[in-house]
Every structure is written in structure tokens, then in C-alpha cells.
Design a protein around this nucleic acid. Sequence first.
RNA 1: GCGGGCGUGGCGGAAUUGGUAGACGCGCCGGAUUUAGGUUCCGGUGACGUAAGUCGUGGGGGUUCGAGUCCCUCCGCCCGCACCA
Length: 892
Amino acid sequence: MIPISLRERPAMRPERYNVRESEAKWRKAWADAQIFKTVNDDPRPKYYVLEMFPYPSGRIHMGHVRNYAMGDVVARYRRARGFNVLHPMGWDAFGLPAENAAMQNNTSPAEWTYANIAAMRAQLQSMGLSLDWSREIATCDPSYYKHQQKLFLDFLDAGLVARKKSKVNWDPVDQTVLANEQVIDGRGWRSGAIVEQRELTQWFLKITDYSDDLLASLDRLDRWPEKVRLMQRNWIGRSEGLAVRFVIDPATLGALKGEPQTSELDIYTTRPDTLFGAKFMAIAPDHPLAAAAAKHDPALKAFIEETRKLGTSVAAIETAEKKGYDTGIRVAHPFDPEWRLPVYVANFVLMEYGAGAIFGCPAHDQRDLDFVRAYGLGVTPVVCPPELDPASFTIGAKAYDGNGVMINSRFLDGMTVDQAKEEVSRRLEQITVGGNPQAKREINYKLRDWGISRQRYWGCPIPIIHCETCGVVPVPVKDLPVKLPEDVTFDQPGNPLNRHPTWKHVVCPQCGRAATRETDTMDTFVDSSWYFVRFTDPHNFSAPDDPAMADHWLAVDQYIGGIEHAILHLLYSRFFTRAMRKCGYLDLDEPFAGLFTQGMVVHETYRDADGQWLAPSEIRVEGDGDRRRAFLVEGSEPVEIGPTEKMSKSKRNTIDPDEIIATYGADTARWFMLSDSPPERDVIWTEAGVQGAYKQVQRLWRLTCEIERIIGPERPAPPADYGDEARRIRRIAHAALAKIEDEIERLRFNVCIAAIYELANELAAAVGAIGESPVGDDLRAAFAEAGDILVHCFAPMMPHLAEECWEALGHKGFVAQSSWPVADRSLLVSNHVTYVVQVNGKKRGELTIERDADAKRIEGAALALDAVVRAMNDKPARKVIIVPLRIVNVVV
RNA sequence: GCGGGCGUGGCGGAAUUGGUAGACGCGCCGGAUUUAGGUUCCGGUGACGUAAGUCGUGGGGGUUCGAGUCCCUCCGCCCGCACCA
């Protein structure tokens, strides 16, 4: 698989480009010249390109290679286009794996983390990324989290922090609290343990203060993928509706034996117009009324238990039947005191949303319809679709949730849905029950406040002191950072900060009495919610940022990362930006002007006869297509070729970037990661793909050497006149340049690379055509220009090779520092154009004609073409359509 | 269940956004160079057909002078989700 011959015989091919030597040489040259160091007060327009910073797991993977290769193309391209580019790198360095490693290897999380950072930094540096390493930050460093603690205190002052008792998801293995979104299928996202519900006092950031703003601003993020915006929109989940108080018939409350003392059932609805179609009330299994009723009703208690077991997983919910339990409680219809509605506990009503209770209108909600079909509660349609006859309109298996005319609804009859919603809201607002209006218009959000407390050691300490006398006291700013103690042990579960002998014991800054520190640390999403700000002034000792610098560099012009952060990281960062603005740290609303989410790197999977996963290096493949078979590297034991999946350690289908770079070089790895698939889609790692990329490295090098041979030792001055061939070469080069430019700007790297291949193919053919014959100055000049253009075009993807070629073409200095050539688009316009000639929409021929030929001449020439005459078959042309510069269509 | 996306040669994918379908790469076939293999170079490669040509972008229908692209409908695959009242 690995081309051994390349390693063994370089000396026999002296013209071969020595990847390893050259790459190391240029990386050192860039570093020595510090050409990627960004200064803040550069007068050129700024461009901030950022890739999501990695967690320092210890080794980079191919996903990183792809992500950072993309960002580096953008950075190098923008630099060449005259921008002052900020392209920094850092480490998302807090988090659980460091504690697990500490437990297993008896090291400290800090030691483990910093060793990983050193290893990964070296790996990233071997990729030849144009990063400003002088701005490197690690979120676990006190010089970073000190400022995060300051931000927390500022947010506290600004009223953006809340301390609430709340039911939390407790992960019994990790012994920590998880956010709702960190609970997947009822299990912790890291530990996989079944999550329990516990009541704890937690710190929250009030992201819901910005619900509306975070939602509305999405419309302005026009350089974000629509998919991500939609996901955030759904996550925020705004709905306009009506909160309605239903009066409970006291006679039906007897079973509750006076507890709770309630006379009303509050519900929330977005469809008040359907109130006359109501057939039942449904409350969530964990609704207080349900709990109260269950106290005296073992069957109900059992039912609630059963629904709990259902869990929250999508699969379970999908297959679950709509089930309910009649509590015996009855409420009065708001518009008809005689009309009684039964109150059910239902498995499809969520306590967390709205009021945890609804009224069910089966005709116009599928869930409600399914429910009444099971319990025989009847269906009355109240909205009749337009153009259907109300008298005969009935509901079958499907609820109708569209617009229409109100029917069977007393005073609403004849209204539209919107009018009916308004009328019901207006009337109920005016009815008073027990001194309050019966209904209130309400806007609800699914978004909830962000709980940031984590019962962990390896995170940013929350700078708070608990005093028995003074209560919750912020740590004075002068005492920041609250540093993590280094002498901690991980020999037992739970938070080491909590059991540390001295760390948490302090005196209260207010009263001087003995007090204790907050031992919770912050969710690591806090760390990554402002690192892009810190990069603008990374070594500021006294403050999180310099507002002038932050405002100069932000927003990030191009942010690149995985789709898995579509909601949490990006939403939290958007919130943080608003919170920091409120506290005066910057003056902008959106942190990321352009967002790109790249696809994964995937690879085939292999298993042996026992079903054990095998690494790609342990197998060999023979044949192709349907005859493709895999065997163990040694021997003939067959291996099963499994589906192509995301590279993962567990399936052993990973490829180590280190090995690829050592064998083929960084340029090959980068090129391949960009060439084969559209960047937003998954790319399949194949050996053939890497080798193809490697071949291209060598081919571009040879081509450059050939071009250099034609140019000769002296570069000719541009001549006054170019001959036909020289003009042709210039046209090819400039056409390619224009296309490549467009494609890089649209981040369509695979198409861009295809255009580079095309240019190289054309130039190679032109070089071949010349052979050993003498070459005029005009042609030499054209080749010199084309060679420069070629090198510039692939320089963002294969920067090392580009430097070597740039030097071979006789240039001093770095191509990485030279300006992008200007595409002369006027060269692309020739005075002849080629029309495609169709007859009845079918291509029959081509017509090359003067650019300025008029319609009559084009029509005449087109109709005279042999193939056109033949296809017309003596029939007269009924119509001739001419699209200027493109196509002629003859209709017969 | 809801929402979103996708479907193009043997494979990955292009297609100026309604105007030459299959760019470019991989693979495959043939040739040259080479002691041989590999490398490198040249040519060919959607299907059917000797050819003129016919067919062809998941299936069916429609709009249009013209559809991979727009509309309707069906099928298949992928992703997201919180039954959101």
C-alpha cells in the first residue's frame, strides 16, 4: 500500500521533489521569518479566519486535518489578497477526559493536558498551517480562566446570572450534573450511565433574556448554513399562544381529599381558535395535579410510573401509543359553564413546556386525534378547509391542521383561524375568574437558562464564596484567579475540590468569618464561548480583552467546524457576545459572520471471522468492484469489508495523520482532504486517493521544472505583442485563475482543485508540444506568467511545494507573502464565440461566429449547418430562438 | 410522527443556477519508455449501434423553444428533533 519504492530510491530520481526535506525546510523558513505573526495595528483590511479549536486529546485525527486544511486555504488566500489575516489556534483544554486519565495513569489532569497540547501542537505544526502561534491560548491556563471568572462576576453584576434550585440530570458514574442536551437517550453523553433526577442548587446564565434577540438575529446571518439556522430556530422554539385558566368542578375534586387546594387548571395553547372542538384536558405525568391525584389512586400511580419508564428517547416516543388515564376530575369550558371536559393524565404532554397541560382538540391535532380514537371521546371539526362543504366535512384518520373557516363554534362561525384566535383571546382576557382574567396572551420558548455548574475538578472555578452570615459572596476581583489546587487525588468518585483539606476553606471577604468556596466548576462550553474574543488580545494581563481590539477584529469573517456544534457552542457563543456587550467588552451582536460546517472523514470498516475490528494497516485488498476482497496482511484469511463510517477508535478504521504526513508529506494530506468531496459532505479516505494526491505533488513539481526550463535563466520582459500560442497560454492561465479565485471564495475546494488539474493538464500539453524547439520571448513570458499563476493557485492547498516551485521559477522571498496575481478577465473575451445549435431542443452542431454578429447572421449561419439541415428534414423553421453568446434553438 | 437534505457513468463528483450532461480525479482498456514490476508519458472510456443515430441525471406526469436544474406525485437513502400544544 505504501509506495516503498519512493522511500528506497529517491537518489535514483534526482528530479523528484523530496517531500520530507523540503517541507521541513520551508516550515523552518516561515517560522524564522515569523511571516504568520499578525500585528493588530496593520493598516490593511482585516480578515479573521478561525477553525473550532481542538480538545487536546493527545493526537490529531483526520477530521482535524480536514478542518484546519480548509481554514488554512482561506487564511493563505486572504493574505495573498491583501488582507491582514488573523488565524490563531488554541486549546479547549478543560474537561472530563483529563480527570479520567488522571485516575487511570496516576498523573495530574494538568500534566496530562499540557503534555497532550505539546504533542498536538507539534502535529499541527507539521501540517504547515499558517497560524500565528504567538497567540496560542489554553482554556485551562489561569491566565485564561482568570478572565473568565471576571466575566462571570460582571455577568453577575449585570443580572445575567441566576442561582436556582432545580431538578438536574445527575450522572451517577461521572458524579456530575448534565445539561438536558448532554443527556442522550436518558444516558450521560460521556459516561453512558442512566441519568437520575436530583434537586440541586445550580448556577445559571440567563440566556433566555436574549431568546427573542437570538432568534431574530438568525435572519441576518446570511453566511450561515440554512440548516444550522433552522436548528437554532427550532431549539429556541418560540410560540405565540394563550394561557387559559379552566375552572375545576369542585364536585369532582373529592378524591383528592383537599390537597392540593386548587380550583383551576392552567393550560397553554397555540390554537385558542379550536376551543369549541375541545374534547378533553391532558396534563403531564409529573404535573402537580397528577401527583396529587395519584396519591389516592394506585392505578394512576402505576400509570405515571409506566410513562416514566418510556423515557425520552425518540425511538421510544415514536412507537409509543398515545395513552391516558382519566383522573375523574372535570373542568368547565370557558365559554359554557355547563360543558364539562374530562382531565386525563397523558403520556404525550410535557411538564417542561408551557403549563404542562393542554386542552385536546382531536379534529385539528394528530396526537389528540389518536388519543380520542383510543378513548372514544368523539371528534368535532371546527375548522373547515376552504372549498369544502362544512355540512359534509368530517375528520378521518388524519387531523386537519390547515387554514379554513370556523364551523361548529357558535360566535366564531364564519371567521378565519386568525380571526378566531384573536376573538377567543380578546373575550377570555375580559372574563374575570377569581379576580383575574381567564386568559393571558403568552409567548413561550423552549429555550431554557443555561446551567453551568459542574461537580468537577478540571474546569474553571466559579469565583464565589459561601458565608453563613453574608450568604453568597463574589470573590473580590483582586483575588482572581481562583486557582485550582494542584494537590488533588482521584482515587474516589466525586469532586476532589470538595474533599480537598484546605482549598475550600477561606474567610468571608465581607465579614471575615470562616466561609467556604464554591466547589463547582463551570461547564466547558463557557470556555469556548469567548475564546474567539480572547484571540484578539491574547496576552492582555489585566482584562479579558481590549474592546478596541475586539471590535477591530470581530466578527470572525469565516468560522469553520463540525455540524455537531450547530446548536450548543454556537448559541452559547452568540449569547456570550451579547452578555459581553452588555458589560462593555465589545460592541457587536453576532460573533461569527460566516460559518461553514464541514463533513466528516469516513473510512471502510473491517472485521475478521470472529467479528473483531481490524485496522486498515492489518488488511490488504485485492480485486475491484464486485470482486473486491480483503485478507489479513499476512496469510490468506478472508476479512469482511463493512460499511464506510466515521473514523473512530472503537471501529479501528482510523488513519493516523502522523503516518500519512511522514510517508507522503503534509501537502499530500491537505490536498487529498480537500480534493475528493464537496467540503460540506463526508469524504471517504482511500489509499488510492492519497496516492493520487501524492502523484499530483510530483507532477506539479515536474511541470514547474519544465516551465522553468522553457523560461530559461532570465525572465523575459513582457513583450509588446504575443503570438497565437502565447496568447492561448495566457488565456488558459487567466481563465483558470479567475475560476479558482471564485471557487476559493465560495469554499468549493474540490471544484477549485479540479480547475488546478485542468490548468496543469493544459500547461503540460503546451510544454510537451514545444519539446526541444527554440522558444521566442513572447512564449517565454507567457510561460513565466502561467507558471506563476499555477503556483499561486495551489499555494493555499500545498504551501510547501509552492515555495519550492516559486523558488525554482526564480523568485526571491516566499510565495506565502506575495500578492495574488490579478486575473485579466479581458483576455477571456475573444472576438469569436461558439454557439450550440439545437433543433427542437436537441444539439445538432456548433457554430463559431464573430462575437458581434447580429441575430440575422447567426440564424442564417445556423440554418446552413449540414447537421441542422439534415435534422430539419426539409421542414420549415417555425421559430428560431437565439440566446446571446450561448445557444441557437431552431423550432420546426 | 415532524422538519431538513440528497438521488447524475464502475466509483468520488462537475454542470456558468433554465441553455452542449458527465468537467476534474480514481478505476479500467490499449500503446510508448523500462531487463521486469512500479513510476512516467500518449490515447480511449455513459449505454446500445458497423455507422448515421437512438437512449440516458431514482420512477411517473407536467410547465417550457429548451429541464439534472422549476412544479406535482411516487420510491429510496441520509441527517436533525424536544409528540412543543
